[in-house]
Design a protein around this nucleic acid. Sequence first.
DNA 1: CAGGGTTGATTAATCGATTAATCAACCCTG
DNA 2: CAGGGTTGATTAATCGATTAATCAACCCTG
Lengths: 344, 344
Amino acid sequence: MAIARTGSNLSQIAALLGVSSATVSNALSGKGRVSAELTEKIRATAADLGYTPSLTGRALRTGRTGVLGLVLPDIANPLFPQIAQAIEYAASNAGYGVLIADSRGSVALQTDAINRLIERDVDGIIIVPRLGTRIADIDCPVAVIDSPSTPGNTVSADHWQGGQAVVEHLVSLGHRKFLLIGNNPASNVQNDRIGGMKSCVPEDGHADVLWIERHEQSHGKGSLLGLQKKVEAGFTAFVAISDLHALRALTELQRAGVAVPEDVSVTGFDDLVWSSVITPGLTTVRMNTAEIADVAIAALVRVIEADAGSAIPAGPVVAAKRSSVPMQLVVRQTSGPPPKAQIA
Amino acid sequence: MAIARTGSNLSQIAALLGVSSATVSNALSGKGRVSAELTEKIRATAADLGYTPSLTGRALRTGRTGVLGLVLPDIANPLFPQIAQAIEYAASNAGYGVLIADSRGSVALQTDAINRLIERDVDGIIIVPRLGTRIADIDCPVAVIDSPSTPGNTVSADHWQGGQAVVEHLVSLGHRKFLLIGNNPASNVQNDRIGGMKSCVPEDGHADVLWIERHEQSHGKGSLLGLQKKVEAGFTAFVAISDLHALRALTELQRAGVAVPEDVSVTGFDDLVWSSVITPGLTTVRMNTAEIADVAIAALVRVIEADAGSAIPAGPVVAAKRSSVPMQLVVRQTSGPPPKAQIA
DNA sequence: CAGGGTTGATTAATCGATTAATCAACCCTG
DNA sequence: CAGGGTTGATTAATCGATTAATCAACCCTG
């Protein structure tokens, strides 16, 4: 014997009013033909009973569960909560629930995570892919949030433009010698940011790139980045592709007695939670997660709800109307003019 | 016409072998009586067809969806991803999916979030409650992860013991004058941590508490905490209830020219991602999120799967076998002996 | 060898909602 | 007033899996 749900169901309403459950379904969904009078009565009793439709029953019949899957990369990325929140909010507004699946930093587990979601019959999947992963063939609509230069990207922040914005800001303050700090050159996101930064270095300026993962391979994990020597070599702007690395740079410089922003400027990316409370407050670039989530969900929902007609979607990865959303520069206290001596 | 699922179903296997779908169901689930020979044949064809049971069909029949809801407080808490990851992992191992719902920092939205989950027929809910929220009556089993001193708490880290561990460490280094840094005294978690810290201050020592939210009400959001004056007043240990506040303290002190750990020690809580990469590395206390998640999920699953017998559970909030899980001290570079002059 | 017990299967109902097909009643119109 | 059209409802099938009830075949045992 199946276990009865706590709430009421269509047949209960139908029995109470002496009509068929089909009529109740039609009345509540506005489909079919039901007299205005009866519709009103059905609405009223449904409200009285606190009726909520069984999404399971509906899912079985319609083949749509109303649930989206969200696949996230390595949890270490502190931007994750913001993205997850934005996706959940946008999905919820569109009438969808969000199942999470964690790829725990490994490509194999990412595939497992996707398969778990598909087994649960999600209507679509949003993937924030792990570094350089290609999305394998997936049997449902997929939205990819990575970077505009990634093939198959659905929507993402305009990381290149974000990189431009922060370097333009520093150039206008008078900086000419930049140390760009990245982590892993295999990341499309990081490459876009670095690329945008480089594109704005003026002809009389200079930019070096420090890749942290490479540096740590030779110097050991968590080792100093040797920034003090860079300061001595005349670098005045330390431009990181993440607040995490900016923070690392900032504390290393402070510890070495280099004053920020008086001696050098430090900037980050992503506006993570701590950026506003540290001293000095971190100048950074913020992505519009709400907008990105809205676009991704809208694109996904459009394909899902059109799917009734065309059985086979063209490709699994959906396209959005806008594929990139501008980033916004947030100026706080870690960026300022370089010391007088440095200005040529 | 309902939309057919992409995969195969029980009746397809049944038709292929010329048996009834009931037999296929029995064979695959190991229930009922099916000959060993036939069971083997059914298993083989199921594997051939790549059969995965429709969880929707099963859910409708059994009344259990195999999905848990996870309600998270304000996303600003950077510990969230670790908890979410641990919960998802534990749930997945127990055969459950995890739907997320964000309470976005408001009690009203927390209730909305819970209702959305219930509408989706989750089998149980895990709540990491917002500051001082009481869990309203909920129509399904609930596990609460807050603090051992919270009434109705299911399981959590032993925040009191964590507070003890960090102050014991500092006392053994020679510290006697402590500034304990909290945010909001209405939080059970924060109160437990502060309480544990205080309980380990020796008789010849002293501890003051700085509540940041109160401080900001009079001094403005993001204002300096006035720690330099505290250093001048002889405080040598700054013990925060979160790495976020420890980071704030650390940068403020470094900026003011106070050397950490030579002049003063700074410690945090939660071992957030950046704690290991900043310079100097932050001494902190880590919670065993995996263990907490395992206990919470186990308690929830126990009630859910016993529910078949007893229709009405005693109360919605489930109890666990262990209600508190010890925290672990992680010693890095921000803690050291106080300057010689300060040792009496 | 009659009749109780076991084995290994099938039948049919069920969970809840949706929807194509059908039907009764009524309204018109030529 | 016969017959086509519309209105407002119902009937019945369906999505996929589960499971209580039933049944046929066979095996024993007294």
